[in-house]
Design a protein around this nucleic acid. Structure first.
Lengths: 245, 245
DNA sequence: CCGAATTAGTGTATTTCTTACACTACCTAC
DNA sequence: GTAGGTAGTGTAAGAAATACACTAATTCGG
């Protein structure tokens, strides 16, 4: 294993793009870096992969070490390997993404040196991030946008009980567009993934909305069966437009 | 750049999954390996990434070196990094994929030691491949299956002139299913991507079919505009099934 | 030359999905 | 009790998906 030019001093890292939804806004989890390079800058929670560690295991470990989040389902998105993307050597990074309910997890004020703190940031107002993390985040956001039309993404992002309007706002936030209320409800309800809890909101200064939850069993069947969920509202028919793969 | 545990002896490789269509069959381009490990076995055309080389550039270079193919549009699919996937050390590989017209390219009997020869193999009858290449190929094939319903993939796989039946067979080969002739034609023609050449097949022992070609300009617009192409024929409505993202 | 074999090519009716669109119901706060 | 605010509801028209079977054009063999 010693052919120079094949094995050389290099490293792999993983970076996690964790989306959440809170206050009507799509959020992404960032850390304030505790280590050079880019110390004190915000960046994605990521770190080096160890020699005896799978990529996915590494992503999970790193996420836990930097933010305290554990037991998060991560999915590989894309690998970034520009020659100069890391200032101290050749490093390629594999990006993972996840959707979580912000209410389910507590961010630990990290004790490691890697991250001074972890915090949710609005996706819509991000300043520049460490490394090429803006590019990485963008790739994951694009994936999320594609996904949201084909999978009932709210299941993963919303708290256990939610209103239809909240669900609609989630979709609108991700798609960066408005949806028709009646059509949205018709479609969502016709999918038969929601359970009407027969409860209503409390403490709001207007007519309280009914609360729903997702039907976990049906959601599983949905994913397993490759069923779909075509939340159209197409970009006004340029002949026969739907949304890009 | 010398923290042990971060930078360690390791390597990146790229592997290319090149699909073609020929003799009514979906093909993938493999090389007979000229180098250990797995010498003399069939595997994907791949090799190490050099220290000063982007991943995509490496994929292109390697493809050319092993098969003679040049100027192929490659797209990143997924990265494989199991700890034991390579017998001589820690190696992660980034998989790239492409669709090409087999008639456009000549496979050079490779002069390098990397590959003894390159050859098209039917996707449907593959024996075991070197490394985890079966898994890599499968991931790319799944991507192709998803793509074919959303993009006019025939453009990339068929020779310049083709019949509608050939186009339909291509789709059937990729999707591993049968399509209705009349509905297929209706749909394809309504997309307005094909040009009727007003020519017919020659040398066939039956009524000759008309020949078509793709309209390159409209195809570009198609890709750019994110338009779609929903080749449904759904798996008989499990309520509202379409095909998985 | 004619019949058999083979693939090409075509249309319609039914059902389902998508879209556009506006008013009433219910609750709180003052 | 009324003003302000969000929740909740239905329908009609157009577009797309599906299911389905016969005729047309050519070659080949006798």
């Amino acid at each position: 294993m010693t052919d120079p030019g094949k094995f050389f001093k290099s490293a792999f890292t993983v970076d996690n793009v964790i989306f959440g939804f809170d206050e009507g806004d799509l959020k992404v989890l960032l850390i304030k870096r505790g280590e050079e390079p880019y110390k004190d800058k915000w960046g994605l929670p990521g770190y080096f992969v160890y020699p005896d560690e799978d990529l996915l295991s590494a992503a999970k470990r790193v996420l836990k070490e930097t933010t305290g989040l554990d037991n998060v389902y991560l999915e590989q998105v894309k690998t970034f390997g520009a020659v100069d993307r890391h200032p101290v050597g050749r490093v390629i990074t594999v990006a993972y993404y996840s959707l979580i309910k912000t209410s389910d997890y507590k961010l630990t004020a990290s004790s490691t040196v890697l991250a001074q703190k972890a915090k949710w940031h609005s996706v819509s107002k991000l300043k520049d991030l460490a490394f090429d993390h803006t590019e990485i985040l963008d790739a994951c956001f694009q994936l999320l946008k594609r996904r949201v039309r084909r999978r009932p993404v709210g299941f993963e992002l919303l708290p256990p009980k939610f209103t239809l309007t909240e669900l609609q706002h989630l979709y609108e936030a991700i798609l960066e567009t408005d949806l028709d209320k009646r059509n949205f409800r018709k479609k969502i309800l016709s999918m038969d993934l929601l359970v009407d809890l027969d409860e209503v909101q409390e403490g709001v200064a207007h007519r309280p909305a009914r609360l729903y939850q997702f039907d976990k069993a049906k959601y599983q069947a949905f994913l397993a069966g490759g069923l779909i969920f075509d939340l159209s509202e197409s970009k006004k028919k340029a002949s026969r437009a739907k949304i890009l793969d």
